[in-house]
Design a binder for these strands. Structure first.
Lengths: 346, 346
DNA sequence: TATTAGCACTCAATATAAATGAGTGCTAAT
DNA sequence: ATTAGCACTCATTTATATTGAGTGCTAATA
């Protein structure tokens, strides 16, 4: 959809109006507007311009004798005309620092610290769609005896994360036996992503030339360890923040929000749709095509491992969100996350 | 503090009033009260009794011409006179089933599923103070090479949980070397709780008779792996639920609540204080001696490993909480958790 | 003596009416 | 094109009844 070109003055007034509304949350009226910004045009002129902008669909009036508020299209214009400045990021030291993440070997903690940080800095709610577990590339497998017939499967991923699974087997095996299994599995499966292991590698190995006797049981164990859903997990943080925003609390928007939190699937779907987008994506109001999140906006960006998009991070807030700060925040964080995953996977 | 004995009729009226207020949240007036419960006494008599109960401190009036609401003391009387019935627990299949927990080897997930369940069933907020990490008894230690000079320390606890730590060392060691270290560490440290290992066992081993050359580096590694805070972690779930309760949302109680969620320390302290209590503890309103949580009540219970109290679970809600359901819920869940931990640690 | 009908009184909550003020659109003059 | 001026609109605020569920007290009743 092509955007109409607005004359300079109209454009800057529109931008200013949207900006003002984002800050104050109150409809912007002509008189107080020119006064506040000491403009050199009269309220009447402003009114005329506002009228034009309303006809064009950028502004609307909540009721006849009120000031103007931006439509979704108005926000869109504002966001598009935003020359994103990363200045304020320098002042923020609460940002994710890559080296802080590096110490962590538990995926869940990495994810939650990223969302926590997004919500803390933005003062809205931070979300993260984790990479599909199936894309994880296995680097090393170690089997350890736990109990009579329980085996602990320790899998080290290419990104340096460690995943544990408990597997119950019928046969009993010695510790030395398991040690051999581990070597076998590591040598055969190292470098493969989980989905390949599940769908082809195991079958290939099974039907291959009759190998050592260890083969079948070892494969049984890893097969069990890799069972489980391939759903990418969704992390949310900072819902409390949204409750500090008046227009969120009002009406039934609150309960609609709580529903979303409870059934994360809706959000998951929305985020999954955006995964192939490059750069920061702002979804304003109804652009998020889901009536349950009407009145909300999302700023998202897909992070990568290497040059493949594997997941999405983002911030959810009211339509009246401080895009000027959130956009660079999401962009910056996304880069950090991409770098982190990419470096780790080398 | 000894409780005054109330005559049968007074007592049952008080109980009924508190009950009614818990359900409706509205001050209970004499006329509608007798009507609603088709009592055989007149409103006037009820008023007299209410007056007495007010003098005794069980009830109060929000304003002169309103009905009565319970004081903290009134709630206390109600809770004390509660003959806890576990009937409804049978109908709840959303409760934690021990066998569901048994499949899990990640402590964090066990904890969060317990709190999630507490909040889901109670419709309030579920909390859990996890056992101090230092009390964990080590059953088995395994060292695996990760990278050049990074070692993955896998610790299996007596309760069957698995804890991973990454340790960076200066020396380089072979895989076989690590294997020997593992054996050494397991044989020396198995059966000791972490705090003993930290405070005495390591020292003792170090100063013992000069052992194999592996000793010192092995001890270095485990020492690094065991560094870290001994703070018991706090898990919270279902804050959303509290936002559905009118009196929580009103005034600044909401923000006070959000603060608590943000700095978990306050709650931690409160819960830690209760850890040596046996059975279910109800803290009503100001009995939680912290002005930040005024207007809230907590129902808690300490769970055990063997016969030692190691942590606390509980439910946080408004003073006007449905104690009749929450008390058995917390009690029951606590038993399940105790049994679970105890069985696992055998 | 314990209970209750009756009555005057209170006061939050609700409904109704008036006043305010920030906003608009339109027109005519600059 | 811009703007001063003016009549008009309407959410918000303020002021003013009205209502109704509640109380306490007193005197009659069982």
């Amino acid at each position: 959809m092509k955007e109409k070109i607005l004359p300079e003055r109209e454009s800057s007034i529109l931008t200013a109006i949207v900006h003002d509304y984002i800050i104050t949350g109150k409809p912007v009226g002509s008189r107080s507007f020119v006064q506040k910004y000491s403009l050199s045009i009269s309220p009447a002129t402003t009114r005329n311009i506002m009228y034009d902008l309303e006809i064009l669909g950028y502004l609307m009036q909540p009721h006849t004798s009120a000031g103007r508020i931006p439509t979704d299209m108005g926000y869109r214009f504002y966001v598009n005309s935003l020359l994103v400045s990363y200045d304020f990021m320098r002042k923020q030291d609460a940002t994710v620092r890559e080296d802080a993440l590096k110490k962590e070997i538990q995926l869940e903690k990495v994810y939650s610290s990223i969302t926590k940080m997004l919500s803390t800095v933005s003062k809205y709610s931070g979300v993260m769609l984790a990479p599909r577990p199936d894309f994880t590339v296995i680097k090393r497998i170690e089997l350890l005896p736990l109990d009579n017939n329980e085996v602990l499967v320790v899998m080290v991923t290419r990104t340096g994360m460690v995943v544990n699974k408990k597997v119950v087997i019928s046969a009993t095996v010695t510790q030395d036996g398991l040690h051999d299994y581990s070597k076998y599995l590591t040598s055969e499966l190292c470098g493969y992503p989980i989905f390949e292991i599940r769908h082809s590698v195991i079958d290939r190995l099974r039907s291959g030339k009759p190998a050592a006797s260890i083969r079948d049981l070892a494969l049984d164990i890893i097969q069990l360890a890799l069972t489980g859903s391939d759903e990418p997990e969704l992390y949310i943080d900072g819902i409390e923040n949204l409750l500090r925003i008046p227009e969120m609390v009002e009406e039934k928007r609150l309960s609609s929000l709580l529903n979303i939190i409870e059934e994360k699937n809706i959000l998951k779907e929305i985020l999954e749709k955006t995964i192939d987008t490059e750069g920061v994506l702002t979804l304003i109001g109804d652009e998020v095509e889901n009536e349950k999140v009407s009145g909300c906006s999302m700023v998202t960006s897909s992070y990568k491992i290497g040059n493949k998009n594997v997941g999405v991070i983002g911030v959810i807030g009211p339509t009246r969100m401080d895009y000027e700060k959130v956009v660079p925040l999401v962009d910056y964080t996304c880069n950090v996350v991409s770098d982190y995953f990419t470096k780790m996977s080398k």
